[in-house]
Design a protein around this nucleic acid. Structure first.
Lengths: 149, 149
DNA sequence: AGAATACTTGACAATAATTGTTGGTCTTTC
DNA sequence: GAAAGACCAACAATTATTGTCAAGTATTCT
């Protein structure tokens, strides 16, 4: 239950690859495709949306690719997922773009889903690409984790 | 993103109706159907699975219906959802029934999804039907909430 | 200029999950 | 035995997911 579609998963992993090169240059779709094993065409779709949302910039021509528009510490997982998957909406009655059910006021379940959604969102907005980068360093060096993950 | 299918939503609402009558008698599918506006046939499917999982007992014949097998305070939302929707598995690599990806050890994203899943599960296992019942009382009486929702 | 590299866009197709419905059976109470 | 009610399996419609494909646009290097 509560699955995340591959769109969001790939998106986060793609952004992670771009973040990796932050300050060092661009990251091409081809590189991401190879490192993360996702098709070039599909990544194009995803990065395009992330660009239009202002999370990355693209540079054309040889030596081109994608770059973050802000530091990894300023990009949360929530930012990425909201662009690709829309807002957290456990139930359709929590979806701002859908029309609510008429039972709204007396619905106990609604409170439950609302509360869960808020907790999820809080978590996703707390974790940044910077933290993923540090986490990876720790994994590779075998260091004990202290972070929020 | 992170939607819960109607199966789980209806299931929780159905169990809530059964919990409402706890200690007072059985609850028929027809009653649930009318109060929660879900088709009889669909509810049959859901309650059947909840029965086979041991969360409710069924009584056939006139005056029959469903009853909780334990007190509302002993049934968590997580219990219900796991029966109807399977375990929390944000990504397929977190699904115990699927085979993991080969990248397991070095995958940073994996830690992220694992951590999120654990938090969600903790929350769902913390909220019981009893709490929903109390919550409803509060809503109806206009009382200020103090609970975990 | 020409070639290489890479991004852009829209259409569309295969697959899988969701969301139920239909139609019938079995059991118990009155 | 008739009505109330649970039980069960099959399957069909719809929607979401998960991509691919093809044709084009832009930029830079040599």
């Amino acid at each position: 239950m509560l699955k995340l579609s591959t769109k969001g998963q790939y998106g986060v992993r793609a952004m992670f690859e771009v973040a990796r090169n932050y300050g060092k240059g661009t990251t091409t779709i081809k590189e991401i495709s190879e490192r993360q094993d996702v098709s070039v065409s599909y990544l194009e779709q995803l990065l395009n949306r992330l660009r239009r949302a202002g999370l990355v910039d693209s540079v054309k021509g040889p030596g081109g690719g994608y770059v973050l528009t802000r530091e990894p510490a300023q990009v949360t997982i929530g930012d990425i997922l909201r662009v690709l998957e829309g807002p957290v909406a456990i139930t359709s009655c929590m979806d701002p773009s859908a029309d609510g059910c008429e039972r709204v006021d007396s619905c106990v379940a609604r409170l439950l889903w609302k509360s869960l959604g808020e907790r999820i969102e809080k978590f996703l907005d707390q974790i940044t690409l910077q933290e993923l980068l540090e986490e990876e360093k720790n994994i590779l060096s075998g260091t004990l984790r202290i972070g929020r993950l």
